[in-house]
Design a binder for these strands. Structure first.
Lengths: 128, 128
DNA sequence: CGATAATAGATGCAAATGCATTTAATAGCG
DNA sequence: CGCTATTAAATGCATTTGCATCTATTATCG
């Protein structure tokens, strides 16, 4: 818990210094970027990011307001929506990644050997 | 990050079901309980819990409002305060611990062997 | 088919958080 | 000593979160 606190704090701070939005934005943009067509249903993003439904709904409001995604109708089910990534969204994710990757390397990569990282990942995987 | 998300969510949920306040309350009460005289300066709690200064200040407002702690003058430095644990605070921490301990065992203890837990702790310690 | 239940997502309101700044007091230095 | 810088803690205001509920739509089952 403490390690996560420290790491997340350090990484968010790096993003902020670089004038970037919070990590949660990245998480959503990343899930969209690596999805088939750059679009997902809100509940899919929810599952993948572990964001609460109401928090995601409002996060999407913010992303939409910034022109990073847009919500489109999902024809097969009138209750659903598509969340579609825009070009601006793709661009921002790439710019964020440059900062984020460096931050990961600084705060994590440089402190763990490959096999140690694998050990942690293997053990923590039991909780997922 | 995900493991922490899941675990914390599960533990907070257990506390809530048992009618207990959030884990942050426990953290503060625990630091007080294990301190010398059941009292600490706000900045000491801040260091130990990693809570932000302004968040702690307001958390203490809530704890004080519930009669779990009280703020007293710190004679040696007029800027400082003592945060003193009350009997109700001690009692609550104990009751929380019953739920919390069970929750830890259920969600963590039962999934890791002693040596595995030590391995994780040893590796994550690099980030502190 | 029609009524009831379930699901996807949005939203009003209260509480918590983040940020910048304030207040009050002590420390440090010429 | 007096002035400026620093520190401890609190606070006003904007943003975000949590909770409960709502709306709209689809699924289920007699």
């Amino acid at each position: 818990m403490r390690a996560r606190e420290r790491l997340l704090g350090a990484i968010e701070a790096d993003l902020k210094v670089a004038g970037m939005p919070p990590l949660a934005w990245y998480d959503v943009l990343w899930e969209l970027a690596r999805s088939q067509d750059g679009k997902l249903r809100p509940y899919e993003i929810e599952e993948r990011t572990l964001l609460a439904q109401y928090n995601l709904s409002r996060l999407l409001d913010r992303l939409e307001r910034e022109g990073l995604v847009r919500r489109e109708v999902f024809a097969e089910d009138g209750r659903g929506r598509w969340v579609v990534m825009s070009d601006a969204g793709r661009k921002l994710r790439e710019r964020m990644w440059i900062v984020y990757a460096k931050s990961i390397e600084t705060h994590i990569g440089s402190k763990l050997a490959e096999n140690e990282a694998k050990t942690i990942a293997g053990l923590l995987d039991r909780f997922l």
